[in-house]
Simulated scan of single mutants.
Amino acid sequence: MKITGIDALQNKLRKNAMLDDVKHVVKSNTTNMNKNMQNIVPVDTGNMKRSITSEFTDGGLTGTTGPHTDYAGYVEYGTRFQAAQPFVKPAFDIQKKVFKNDLERLTK
Rank of each mutant, 00 (worst) to 15 (best):
G5I: 00
N11Q: 15
K12Q: 15
K12W: 12
K12P: 12
L13Y: 08
L13A: 08
R14G: 14
K15S: 13
A17Y: 11
L19S: 04
D20V: 00
D21G: 08
D21N: 14
K23Y: 12
K23Q: 10
K23F: 10
H24D: 15
V25C: 09
V25R: 10
K27C: 08
K27H: 15
K27R: 15
S28W: 01
S28P: 02
T31S: 14
N34W: 04
K35V: 11
N36K: 14
M37A: 13
M37S: 14
M37N: 13
I40C: 02
I40P: 02
I40A: 03
V41F: 01
D44M: 12
D44F: 00
D44N: 11
M48S: 05
R50C: 03
I52R: 01
I52C: 04
E55I: 08
D58R: 09
D58I: 00
G60W: 07
L61S: 07
L61T: 09
T62F: 15
G63Y: 04
T65E: 05
P67K: 01
P67M: 05
Y71V: 12
A72S: 13
A72Y: 13
A72R: 05
Y77C: 13
G78Y: 00
R80A: 11
F81I: 10
Q82H: 08
A83W: 00
Q85K: 14
P86S: 07
P86R: 05
V88R: 01
P90T: 05
P90K: 00
A91V: 00
A91T: 01
F92A: 12
D93E: 12
D93L: 09
I94W: 00
I94R: 07
K96V: 06
K96R: 12
V98G: 02
V98D: 09
F99W: 03
K100I: 08
K100L: 06
D102Y: 03
L103K: 00
E104G: 08
E104Y: 07
R105E: 11
L106Q: 02
